[in-house]
């Protein structure tokens, strides 16, 4: 136990900072995951919503691209006129001005061009997507097919100290994972132990709510199921026998990445001590 590099002023700092920092940090803590999680579990609750949402979302990037390219066009024009005066700082303002002044004019031009064909860009885009969706929904980014719907975890209390996790097997098959791997992860993450009963349900020691199980499952899915490159959940976990590492290979895009093995870590001694 050495004082190496430990800042003795640490304690004081904490005290002084405590008041103003207490309110800040907790919020960002929880921000990162929900978005991903919602995507993952949306199949459960708002399946219908999602498909429409994806559909509505997709046109927007295109539109933005267009408008930004307009901006670029207008910028160039502006610059030639006023380039003697401008500095980098003024440029921002000019950008705004240019956006307000000149874009409408160009937009009307553009509209004229498009409507001469009879369709606006948005109409064509939505038409394209409806056709694509009816013919091959997988290409339209509609991933709410039956394969990727994860059933919500069913937790029952068994006695007062144990929890029955009824549909592990089902979830594992949906995720295309070995149930043993999933169970191992659950044990490590929850810091408990348990067993599988006659009907292949998991009995966990300790009390756990379905909500808690869901958050752990989400973490499992992010770590061991989703492909980092294409976000697909159609993946396979392989164990390389040569180097004893686990590899996750994506069936959709073909990429592979290595996955850390499950480690239990430190387990504190709870309850009665070992008899010496």
């Amino acid at each position: 136990m050495s004082d190496l590099g430990f800042d003795p002023s640490l304690k004081k700092k904490k005290k002084s900072k405590k008041t103003d920092e207490s309110g800040e940090s907790p919020a960002p803590e929880s921000e990162g995951t929900p978005a991903v999680e919602d995507e993952l579990f949306s199949g459960l609750k708002k399946k219908k919503k999602k498909s429409t949402k994806a559909f509505e979302m997709s046109p927007t990037p295109g539109e933005e691209d267009l408008s930004s390219s307009f901006d670029d066009l207008t910028l160039k024009k502006k610059k030639k006129k006023k380039s003697t005066k401008t500095t980098a700082d003024d440029f921002e303002q000019q950008l705004e001005e240019a956006g307000i002044e000149e874009v409408p004019a160009e937009a009307t031009e553009e509209d004229g061009n498009v409507s001469s064909g009879g369709f606006t860009y948005e109409e064509l885009l939505s038409r394209f997507f409806t056709i694509l969706k009816t013919n091959n929904p997988e290409l339209a980014g509609d991933r709410s097919g039956p394969k990727f719907r994860i059933p919500p975890p069913i937790c029952q209390r068994e006695g007062s100290k144990k929890t029955l996790f009824a549909n592990v097997q089902e979830i594992a098959t949906v995720l295309q994972r070995n149930p043993e791997h999933l169970i191992q992860f659950l044990f490590a993450e929850l810091g408990t132990s348990g067993s599988i009963d006659g009907e292949k349900r998991l009995v966990l020691k300790g009390k756990f709510q379905p909500k808690q199980m869901e958050s752990v499952l989400r973490r499992y899915i992010i770590e061991y199921v989703t492909c980092k490159t294409c976000k697909s959940m159609n993946t396979e976990l392989k164990r390389e026998s040569a180097n004893r590492l686990h590899f996750l290979s994506c069936k959709a895009c073909g990429s592979t990445r290595s996955v850390s093995s499950i480690k239990t870590g430190f387990q504190a001694q709870i309850g009665r001590r070992k008899k010496m």
Binding site: D3, G5, F6, L10, K14
Partner: peptide
């Protein structure tokens, strides 16, 4: 290791 656990714990 460069942190003193005892002091951290105290805080």
């Amino acid at each position: 290791n460069e942190y003193d656990l005892k002091k951290i714990l105290k805080v």
